[in-house]
């Protein structure tokens, strides 16, 4: 019951956040704070319930992502060779893959805290980088976590995330390219679908 309340609360909040023009750093901060707050209190997620984590990501995080742009970045120069139909399947499958990865990471949460780095935006900027740092509760070197956002008609949207300097989006570029070399764009789509399916069965087994 409580989790349902949190869930609905999150839904309302997410809508509120996206409804008005929020500065990119404020957006990242409010979404991160909300999500971690929920994960902190949710024993199921912390015990590895990826489905529940995925539902949280779906509601709180996804509205602020531009998956078209993300897919395009991962595809690189192959993007223009894809038909409109292929593009829409690619966006869908890539979205599923990223959500699954993100949700899995949330279930590994262990009381880390987030440090928000100073953010300055020049007037008229349409693309910005918001820097944060993950601090380990046990000490040790903090991990850099940076978000790239672009201005759209529906507010600021994230189009890339870098963890310790590793872009979660462009990291796929080489493997996508090699899938395409082997089986064309449809081959890549098949691989993505198979990957996403295997994830589902693994989740069911649990």
């Amino acid at each position: 019951m409580k989790s349902l309340f949190v869930f609905i609360g999150g839904l309302v909040l997410a809508t509120l956040v996206s409804a008005q023009e929020v500065a990119p750093d404020a957006l990242i901060k409010s979404v991160s704070t909300d999500v971690l707050e929920i994960v902190r209190k949710d024993k199921d997620i912390r015990n590895g319930d990826s489905k529940k984590a995925a539902a949280l990501v779906e509601v709180k995080v996804l509205p602020h992502f531009n998956f078209t742009h993300m897919t395009q970045l991962a595809m690189g120069r192959e993007w223009r060779n894809a038909s409109t139909a292929q593009k829409s399947v690619l966006i869908d499958e890539f979205r599923t893959l990223l959500v699954r990865t993100y949700s899995k990471a949330l279930t590994e949460y262990k009381n880390q805290t987030i440090d928000y780095k100073p953010f300055v935006m020049r007037p008229g900027e349409a693309e910005v980088k918001v820097r944060t740092e993950i601090k380990q509760p046990s000490g040790g070197k903090p991990i850099q976590l940076d978000y790239y956002l672009e201005k759209t008609s529906s507010g600021w949207k994230v189009f890339d995330i870098e963890v310790g300097g590793i872009s979660l989006v462009t990291n796929y570029r080489e493997s996508f390219a090699s899938e395409i070399r082997q089986g064309g764009i449809d081959g890549l789509i098949k691989s993505l679908q198979a990957k996403n399916k295997s994830g589902e069965t693994a989740a069911v087994k649990k």
């Binding site: 979660l168 796929y172 080489e174 994830g199």
Partner: peptide, 16 residues
């Protein structure tokens, strides 16, 4: 969870 092909995922992450 993330890797389509673990070998290239790890390789490209390392290089980045």
């Amino acid at each position: 969870e993330a890797a389509l092909d673990k070998y290239s995922y790890v390789r490209d992450a390392y290089l980045q």
